[in-house]
Amino acid sequence: MRFRLSQKNIPILSTFLVFILLYLSGAFAYKGFFSLRVFINLFIDNAFVGIIAIGMTFVIISGGIDLSVGSLVAFTGVLCANLLSRTDIPPYMVIFICLLCGAALGLAMGSLIHFLEMPPFLVTLVGMFLARGLSFVISLDSVPIRNELFLSISKASIPLGNGIRLPAYAVTFIIMALIGAYILHYTRFGRNIYAIGDNEKSALLMGLPVGRTKIFIYTINSTICAAGGLVYSLYTLAGYPLAGTGLELDVITAVVIGGTLLTGGVGFMEGTVIGVMILGLIQTIITFQGNLSTWWTKVFIGILLCIFILLQRYIAARKIQDKNK
């Protein structure tokens, strides 16, 4: 029994191990790596990736996938920047409109996936096209954000002593991760997500609201993603239609190395947060190394994702073998 228990936890344990190993090797190899500032920067630089990874965790646990997140970040950023610079719409309203647009896209995609039984990858691929295209429709170039409210939000931070501050968007990430973990663990909606990802047919036979939950998952994910887009525009103080290209892989990687099964039914919000931190560590280490091209980041992330997928497949194969014995 104990062995089986640990088998279920292998992915998340190995995630944690990878994090510790990376962190320690960074701390030993580079001067100044082992500092609160570097650690806090992990949260700051990856806040928007982390926020989007929270939504993606919901989607992947439910057995789906969303490829539109990168484009939606760009769209939200461009929309926000343009509404602020070209119109008189109050900034709070702008934030609301951006979130609403995200929700609408998610609702549309979720409905297509549920009602017409279209494969999620195809629907969200179209969503990816659409959002990217629409951001180009709004603007072809980067638009700076000069709104005072936004500037003040981007500057707002919690002092942690030693002149180190935790900016508002990093706090947003942490709070959202906590809420995400709460939803997954303590609400019926959260548990239904697991049930659908585990076995949709069973979930249906057990009387769970499969359709409603599925549509809701995609709606929430896109809304969260729009929030991530807003955070990204706060971080860069601009809206850029080419922002977030390839972001979907980063996010999916973070979720997968965080122990969420791509086949659905198993996953942890805590794992996702560690997964995001690991991506951040890789970036930081490459920066500290100095002579490595930043492109190694992508390569390392891909290799890591590959290793974790192979690990997942291996565990799944072992399980079937155990069953037959």
Binding site: Y194, N199, G265
Partner: peptide
């Protein structure tokens, strides 16, 4: 016969 439950929960 095929158990309609959720194996991972």
């Amino acid at each position: 016969q095929e158990i309609n439950l959720l194996p991972n929960l």
